[in-house]
Computed example of a mutant assay.
Amino acid sequence: MKQQKNSMCRMVDKTASLPAGLRSWVITKMFGKFVPFLGTAGLHFEEVSRERMVVSIRNRKKVQNHIKGLHAAAMALLAETATGFVVGMNVPDDKLMLLKSMKVDYLKRAQGNMKATATLDAAQVGRMAAEDKGDVLVEVLVTDESGESPIRCEMLWAWVPKKRN
């Protein structure tokens, strides 16, 4: 059975005919309407699909710590955003998604810009469509300009039925 597309997927589909660079910019602006803080932090959506989300952040003054690296909270936001939006592409419109837990281990000093790649497998996507409520541990790899992973994250997302008024 093919999973129905939710409103977020349908919105992203409308950008399919745009050139890649413009498509990425438009999706970043649209997702910023959902979560205004994304624009404040300067997050950029590089790749968007139901199975994979790639989000990046530039190391610039607004998001730096005292040693001119990306602030710890900005790194966590990057991972949380990538995982949240890949889940958001799959949770049906009649469900509410919530971050259940977030664990971030800071392993080493980050170098330069960073990127988070969150992925879901077919079984995880299927559960979101089939189960009324549940949770999923979303795999996310966060790398810096050196290609290394300065942080290791675990993001557990849940979905529940929306309350009807």
Rank of each mutant, 00 (worst) to 15 (best):
K115P: 05
T83R: 04
K95T: 04
Y106L: 05
K95M: 15
A122N: 11
Q124I: 02
K108W: 03
V86R: 03
A129M: 11
V63N: 11
A116C: 01
N90V: 04
Q64I: 04
A129L: 07
R127Y: 13
L38P: 01
D94Q: 12
F45L: 05
Q64E: 08
A118S: 10
H44E: 10
D132A: 14
M30V: 07
L99C: 09
K133W: 05
K103G: 09
K133F: 06
V87R: 10
Q124G: 10
G42R: 02
R109Q: 12
V86H: 03
R109D: 10
G126E: 15
D105P: 04
L77C: 11
V48S: 00
M75N: 13
A122V: 12
G32A: 14
A82C: 05
G112C: 07
P92E: 00
H44C: 11
L99H: 06
R127E: 14
T117I: 13
G88P: 00
A129T: 08
A72E: 05
D93Y: 06
T81P: 02
N65M: 11
Y106V: 04
H44G: 04
H44F: 12
L43T: 09
G42W: 03
K62P: 11
R60L: 08
F34R: 15
V86Y: 02
M53C: 00
M128Y: 06
M102N: 12
A74H: 12
A110H: 08
R52M: 09
D132N: 10
M89L: 15
V86K: 06
R127V: 06
T81F: 06
D121I: 00
K61Q: 08
D135S: 13
M30E: 09
K29F: 14
P36F: 01
F45I: 04
D94H: 14
L77P: 01
Q111W: 14
V54Q: 02
L98E: 05
E51Q: 14
T40R: 08
L38A: 07
L107V: 12
A76L: 08
K95P: 07
L96N: 14
V86G: 09
K33G: 11
M75L: 15
